[in-house]
Amino acid sequence: MLDKDGIAKRIAKEIKDGYYVNLGIGIPTLCANYIPKGVNVVLQSENGILGMGPFPYEGEEDPDLINAGKQTVTLLPGAAIFDSAMSFGMIRAQKVDLTILGAMEVSEQGDIANWKIPGKMVKGMGGAMDLVASAKNIIVAMQQVNKAGESKLLPKCTLPITGLKCIRKIVTELGVYDIHPQGGFVLKERAPGVTVEHIKKSTAGKLVIEGDIPEMKLD
């Protein structure tokens, strides 16, 4: 089974040289730590940065330089700053190659719910609906099973929808899945030490298993 860093590490392998990448808050942010040497990418932050760098050194933080999670960040050489309309413009126009984001639920059709839990304080969708509706390549990083033991890979989302039929790939603590064009979670890889049986029990939606499922390689 993978921990959060393991999920991030596996997703980082999907990041290719030359990509412009938008990382969501949480596990997706960790992916930046595992981008292999020699893979040159530019990170986008939807408040208006291309070329976002790591957190600043203590004492060097600048209140005018934050990311979409409102955290203080830095810029890398070659960075650019622009307004939020242009930022979402490049997302909508699919100039950003890869979007990695978290989810509370994903359906076997590729629908995603990640912005609202009924009965809890609504914080808002931020840029999530724009990202899922527009991005050409979205990978979801999520926990497949919640603390109560319930699967979050479902036939249909039960929580309010963020976007319909937009997810292509999911990486969880248990495995890697593609969404089948006709619906279903196509199991591609197992997390280290996880059996297909375990995955079957942890997937509420339609699971598609074709042939032997390899264990994922992280290094």
Partner: peptide
């Protein structure tokens, strides 16, 4: 005042 909402830093 330019208050910072989420001060995130790394150590040298």
């Amino acid at each position: 005042e330019k208050r910072i909402e989420q001060r995130t830093v790394r150590k040298k």
